[in-house]
């Protein structure tokens, strides 16, 4: 969607045009659901976050300012809704302001199995995909949210910073830590196949 399309839709939304509301839903439901599902890890919570996102968006549409695109703005609302829910569920583990710039001993590479040359059918098998999702689910939420927006949803660093209310440097360092952890997990997983366990 171009900026001009966005502006036209925003004008209609702010005028209370129901067709425009439905258009916003049609254009974005799929990606918001995806984000919610990956953040929450289950369909039931994902659906709640999805519904909450659009309900909040409609309430706040008057305050929308075109500094960001509509889709980034929706990502922002959805991320907040997801984080809020996660915090209720796991209040100890989930704090948005958690100072995560700790000693990075936990992200130093330890696994040096080179899985790059494994055959595609091993890398892309369903089980590998399940393992990849599980590894994301297990990331601390501060890293998970950045990773999902940047590497799975394909937002830019700036858009991710905007959606999560983080500085550019925080996005970069969290993304880095997330990727290092996932690399470690995938290496461990694929090492099992590279050592004769292939089937």
């Amino acid at each position: 969607m171009t900026q001009a399309d966005d502006a036209a839709l925003v004008a209609r939304l702010q005028a209370g045009d129901q067709t425009a509301y439905a258009q916003l839903v049609e254009d974005n439901a799929s990606r918001i659901y995806r984000l919610a599902l990956r953040m929450m890890g289950n369909e039931e919570d994902a659906e709640d976050v999805l519904q909450e996102t659009f309900l909040s968006a409609f309430k706040a549409i008057d305050k929308f300012q075109s500094r960001s695109s509509l889709s980034t703005w929706l990502y922002r609302i959805a991320s907040n809704a997801a984080l809020m829910r996660l915090r209720k569920k796991e209040p100890v583990q989930v704090s948005v302001d958690e100072p995560i710039e700790r000693d990075d001993g936990d992200t130093l590479p330890r696994q040096f199995f080179d899985f790059c040359c494994l055959p595609e059918e091993t890398l892309l098998r369903d089980e590998a995909h399940e393992e990849m999702k599980r590894a994301v689910d297990e990331l601390p939420v501060t890293l998970r949210s950045v990773f999902i927006l940047r590497d799975i949803e394909g937002l830019s660093t700036e858009e991710t910073a905007n959606a999560l209310d983080l500085s550019i440097s925080a996005v970069k360092s969290r993304l880095m830590r997330a990727r290092l952890k996932l690399r470690e997990e995938l290496s461990t997983y694929f090492a099992r196949y590279g050592n004769g366990a292939q089937n």
């Binding site: 590479p109 040096f112 199995f113 080179d114 899985f115 790059c116 890398l123 590998a128 990849m132 990773f147 590497d151 799975i152 394909g154 990727r179 290092l180 996932l182 690399r183 995938l186 290496s187």
Partner: peptide, 14 residues
């Protein structure tokens, strides 16, 4: 190995 697998990890998730 780390550089290659790191890059591969990102590609696989993409």
């Amino acid at each position: 190995v780390v550089v290659n697998t790191f890059t591969k990890t990102v590609t696989l998730y993409h």
